[in-house]
Amino acid sequence: MDTADDGTSTAHSLATWLERLTFADLTADEATARILAAIEEWATWQQWRVYRRAPSVVPLPPPLRGNSVLDVACARPGGAAPVAVEVDRLDRQRTVDKLLAEAAAGRVAIWVRWGIGPFVPPPLPVHLVTVQAARRSGRWSTVSERPAPEHSGSAPVVTEAEELPWEP
Rank of each mutant, 00 (worst) to 15 (best):
P59L: 12
P61A: 15
P62H: 01
P62A: 15
P62S: 14
P63I: 05
L64Q: 15
L64R: 15
R65I: 14
N67G: 02
N67K: 13
S68K: 12
V69S: 09
L70C: 04
D71H: 14
V72M: 09
A73R: 14
A73E: 15
P77E: 08
P77M: 01
G78C: 08
G78K: 10
G79C: 08
A81C: 06
A81T: 12
A81K: 15
P82I: 13
P82M: 09
V83F: 09
V83P: 03
A84G: 13
A84I: 11
A84N: 07
V85H: 06
V85Q: 10
V85E: 01
V87P: 02
V87Y: 04
R89V: 00
R89I: 01
L90V: 09
D91A: 12
D91L: 13
D91H: 10
R92T: 13
R92D: 07
Q93K: 11
Q93W: 11
R94T: 13
R94Y: 11
T95R: 04
V96W: 12
D97M: 06
K98C: 05
K98Q: 13
K98F: 04
L100P: 05
A101P: 01
A101T: 10
A101H: 01
E102A: 14
E102Y: 04
A103C: 03
A104C: 11
A104V: 06
A104N: 12
G106A: 07
G106M: 12
R107A: 15
R107T: 05
V108W: 06
A109M: 13
I110H: 00
V112A: 03
R113G: 01
R113T: 00
W114L: 01
W114N: 02
W114G: 00
G115E: 02
G115K: 07
G115C: 07
I116W: 00
G117S: 07
G117I: 14
G117E: 04
G117W: 06
P118I: 07
P118W: 13
P118Q: 05
F119K: 10
P121A: 12
P121V: 11
P122H: 04
P122S: 07
P123V: 11
L124I: 01
L124S: 12
L124H: 09
P125N: 06
P125S: 06
V126G: 04
H127Q: 09
H127S: 05
L128Y: 09
L128H: 07
T130P: 08
V131H: 05
A133N: 07
A133H: 06
A134T: 13
R135Y: 00
R135D: 05
R135I: 09
R136M: 04
S137D: 13
G138F: 08
W140G: 02
S141Q: 08
